[in-house]
Design a protein around this nucleic acid. Structure first.
Lengths: 224, 224
DNA sequence: AACGGGCTTTAAGATTATTTTAAGATATCG
DNA sequence: CGATATCTTAAAATAATCTTAAAGCCCGTT
């Protein structure tokens, strides 16, 4: 999941980014409202974390602008303001949730999952869905109406990435990066072997979709 | 997309050009403000990356001059100056964004996309449109109201180039360069074969335009 | 320290999609 | 009408990907 973090306190920003990365979110950080607005406009994020008190444009202004442009990316406001009035103002302008500083990381994490779930990006607290299948992020398993099957670590990372960005072609580079990490100058056909494993499991579960290969580029999910 | 890079530090320039090329931008490099201004005046770029501290004319001067001539190509200023004052000055003079050195490549890349999108050069983050068709850069596919069809790597590169510069005649040399790379002294009719493939797919999708051939020169998109 | 089980990697041959070649058909221009 | 350029199609060549089996590795257990 891609998260845009708009927060002018650099230290807090860095700490949050690190923790979010640890939970496998892909995070972009910007440090003022104007950049926040510009980045939000690319419409490529699954969630925006938006501070209120910031230079140039405050969080409320950013929120109003992006909603005015019909960008419906979910937004969680982060703020030191604790009054109920401000909270209501934010929700009125189209925020999806509101977290008062100081907050615990666990609280933020839970609220992020809650919002993603409400917006249909996550199914239940820790599941991703595509077609008739559901990928359980806590159990490393994949299920359809035909049953549940366990995935190995590599299978899981690969499928998870494709489930998170189901409309994209996942490039081979990105997939290798996700499952094997940085300097994996793969001259082997390992990725292909794993795609074969996954396809076999999808077939076995009678999934309503397949993994298509896009020659020279990567793989994509595609409904049958 | 065509980018003009005006940057006097040759090493940085070369590194940036390489990375931008990897993301399929067409980059022209110049190394001082005067050349920057001259090239910008051709009005053929989708974006200008403009250093501030440069020989002959500095970035602010270049920017003022091109805006005075009603050239509205988007401009992103690149600079070592970190003061807010300079940033504001640049934005006041008509810059569209401002990136402080040192910057990460990801940041620049995201800002470029944000600017192109704001300026209407990109439809959403990763689609190009022409007539009733939309070329999805993340899916390597082409869609109209009749459906979606997958493109092979070569088909995609060729059509992408024509979608990016729809008002121009794409010369055969440029198209071959894009799809096959440098030393492709093509004596074959490969390009024509691919144009035939593409026309067949456009017909199948009931596209509102065709690929016209311009005898002796190349091809152009043309509404029916 | 040896064993076993599951996961991961390697390797090789089979398969398939893409790309290239080639040749005849069709169009354009002076 | 020739001469030249382009179009279309099918078949051949190429290169990417698939699949399978076996080998290697890691980790917990004995």
């Amino acid at each position: 999941m891609r998260i845009l973090l708009v927060e002018d306190e650099k230290e807090l920003s860095r700490a949050l980014a690190k923790m979010l990365a640890k939970e496998d979110y892909d995070v972009d950080c910007v440090y003022d409202g104007l950049d926040g607005l510009n980045f939000a406009m690319t419409n490529m994020y699954d969630l925006i974390l938006l501070d209120i008190i910031m230079p140039k444009l405050n969080g409320f202004e950013v929120l109003s602008s992006i909603r005015a442009k019909k960008i419906d990316t979910p937004v969680i406001m982060l703020t030191a303001l604790t009054s109920e009035g401000d909270k209501v103002a934010g929700l009125d302008k189209g925020a999806d949730d509101y977290v008062a500083k100081p907050f615990s990381y666990n609280e933020l994490s839970a609220r992020i999952r809650a919002v993603l779930r409400r917006k249909g990006k996550l199914v239940s607290d820790n599941k991703l869905e595509y077609g008739n299948a559901s990928l359980d992020l806590t159990r490393y398993s994949l299920a359809t109406e035909k049953g549940e099957i366990n995935l190995t670590a590599k299978e899981f990372e690969l499928l998870r990435y494709m489930f998170e960005y189901p409309s994209f072609v996942a490039t081979k580079e990105d997939l290798i990066l996700k499952a094997w990490g940085f300097n994996s100058d793969f001259e082997s056909n390992n990725l292909e072997v794993y795609m074969s494993f996954l396809r076999k499991k999808l077939l076995h579960l009678e999934a309503s979709f397949t993994i298509e290969s896009v020659r020279g580029v990567g793989y994509r999910l595609s409904s049958i």
